[in-house]
Nucleic acid binder design. Structure first.
Lengths: 108, 108
DNA sequence: TTTATTGTTCGTATATTTGCGAACAATAAA
DNA sequence: TTTATTGTTCGCAAATATACGAACAATAAA
């Protein structure tokens, strides 16, 4: 048994999402995906100054964090935001930055 | 000269802050600091399941990201949020999660 | 069948992150 | 002076992250 507290689920999820956002390439990908309904791998690659292998890797991380989803449309791969988890992330951050008194009390 | 775009300052700053938030210990530290006006190193260490050397390291990262500030009050060290940068971070995230149409247009 | 297109995966190199104990610094107390 | 308190810094080990070229898979086109 540990003597000190571990982290809450909220803290773990927030850290997980923040980590996924912790690279400019991934931010650029999300900015891009948020600006349209969907697009293909090549479109994303064209937006970024890195190799396709690296883009693919960043996309995988975003997918693992639940922020985006990909779907094969042979011969292309279609990507889009996972809008549901995107809103969840938004709310997790909003809560984090909210005044502490609002988290516990009667703050709308 | 690079052929493809680099990242915008906004994207770089957001990634930098997100990276600083990308570990549960640092989230826990910020949650704690946000809940009070200030506190001392020992108080933070008591909240976390990690060694003081590691706590000190996490604090340094948060300080480097501009999210907190420390001040020596011999023999203790007082820590608190950097409220100004905290609000800036809040707004950078809020913008990021905002609908794209709101970023360019006439959205309040 | 051969060739082209579109991405993913593999293998590898390098850099960064995380974590800890030990040593250290600065001051105060005994 | 010696001892205790409070944190930081150093040195190191192990784990992750970042990046890329090459190889590969799946399909479509020639």
């Amino acid at each position: 048994m540990n003597e000190k507290k571990k982290y809450t689920d909220q803290q773990l999820r927030l850290a997980q999402v923040a980590k996924a956002l912790g690279h400019p390439a991934r931010i650029a990908i999300l900015d891009f995906l948020a600006s349209l309904d969907h697009c293909y791998f090549g479109d994303i690659h064209d937006e970024l100054p890195i190799s396709k292998a690296t883009v693919s890797q960043h996309l995988k991380e975003l997918k693992d964090a639940g922020l985006i989803q990909g779907e094969i449309e042979t011969p292309k791969v279609k990507y889009c935001l996972n809008r549901e988890n995107w809103q969840q992330a938004r709310s997790v951050f909003a809560t984090f930055f909210r005044e502490p008194s609002c988290k516990t009390g009667r703050c709308k």
